[in-house]
Computed example of a mutant assay.
Amino acid sequence: MDPLAAVRAEGDPACDVYLTGTVFLDIVFTGFDAEPVRGGETWARGMGSSPGGVANMAAALSRLGLRTCLAAAFGDDKYGEYCWETLEQGEGIDLSRSRTVPGWHSPVTVSLAHDGERTMISHGHEPPPLDPDHLAEAPPARSCVASLRPGHTQEWVRRAAREGALVFGSTGWDETGSWDLAGLPDLPHCDALLMNAEEALRYTRAASPQLAVHALAEHVPVAVVTLGAQGACAVDGRTGEKAEVPSILVDPLDTTGAGDVFMAGFVTGTLAGWPLADRLALAGLTAALSVQEFGGSLSAPGWGEIAAWWERVHAVEEGEENAPTLERYAFLSRLAGPLPDVTTPWPRRRAVPTLGFRG
């Protein structure tokens, strides 16, 4: 399914979304009977491996039908080879702007998922920077996703915005401790800004996430604040459109990459021209489906998984108390293209999350 079928036109860029960042190899352990303790040995009932880091968002975008181009450095080792092959051949991501760096090994993150939380241990050396001229030659794209860093300017973001791409910005923890929006030099180029509630409260000094999202909308056309288990809220400062959508309650297996998958859903709905509330709903749904599987990239749902969930909602969630769910996600039945036929039972299993099965 192509979610942008209704808006595509002759002469449009071949790339829907361009992004850059660091690719990790993620190794995830799940299914602990008790939290690991120092000096002891703890067995996990589940383990999976997958490309991580920026690969989480790239895979999520591609699985939702967006033509995705990723510029990243890959390690010159078996981990890097696995990540490259998985993203290019398995996920159909354009890696023509990426490169393998001789002698540089892949960053690795081990994630311990327990009781709805995760503890991560990472190892890696600073990735060799991609040639600025190489980044500046980013392909024409409908949109790009940029990670905003205090005091750090990315020339390719400015150029992408100037050439008409929609820029979706995200932030991380501000290690400088300043929490100053004026210190994000790429913010003026952003069409949308997505933050979690804690970041939004620190950046705006607001008393609540709902007030924070309005404060952020004074700096960027569309502001989104994710509220964890409470869902997400958003404001379009240009039109005055507001939305708050509750989350879908699930039993999480691994929350790795949930924020990246949320971003992918929001980007997809925005490029398709959907109302703000529908964009939040799709983003929240894709994130909820992803945390029920291993890893961030291999857990990202496609339209088949979304169709399976929607069919299950109709089948098992009947009654007046479930009417809000059916009403909130009714837009899934009105998409430009039909959802895929569901031929396998719920839950859908998307990938074997392990390295190197031979044959």
Rank of each mutant, 00 (worst) to 15 (best):
D2L: 05
A5L: 02
A6W: 07
R8L: 03
A9E: 07
E10N: 01
E10R: 07
G11M: 09
D16W: 02
T20I: 11
V23Y: 08
E35V: 04
G40H: 07
R45F: 03
G46P: 11
S50P: 09
P51G: 08
V54R: 08
T68F: 01
F74K: 01
K78I: 11
G80Y: 06
G80Q: 02
L95H: 04
S96D: 07
S96I: 00
S96V: 04
R99W: 10
R99P: 01
R99S: 13
G103P: 03
S106H: 06
P107W: 09
S111D: 14
G116F: 13
I121P: 08
I121G: 11
I121S: 14
H123Q: 15
P127V: 04
P127T: 09
P132H: 01
D133W: 07
D133K: 02
A136P: 00
P139F: 05
P140C: 08
A141I: 01
A141L: 05
R142P: 03
A146F: 02
P150S: 10
Q154P: 04
Q154R: 10
A160G: 05
R162F: 07
S170A: 08
D174V: 04
D180P: 10
D186H: 00
D186M: 03
D186R: 03
E198P: 08
A200C: 08
R205P: 09
A207Q: 14
S208H: 14
L216Y: 04
L216I: 05
L216C: 01
A217F: 12
H219M: 04
V222T: 14
A223G: 02
V225K: 06
A229D: 15
D236I: 12
T239E: 10
G240I: 05
E241S: 12
K242E: 15
P246N: 10
L253F: 10
L253N: 12
D254Q: 02
A258Y: 07
F262I: 01
F262A: 00
A264H: 13
G269C: 06
T270E: 06
A272F: 13
G273Q: 01
P275T: 06
L276P: 11
R279V: 08
R279W: 05
A281D: 03
L282K: 09
G284W: 04
T286R: 13
A287E: 07
L289V: 04
G295S: 06
S299K: 02
P301M: 11
G302K: 06
A307Y: 09
A308S: 15
V313N: 13
E317H: 04
N322D: 04
N322C: 05
T325V: 15
P340Y: 10
R349N: 13
P353N: 14
P353A: 15
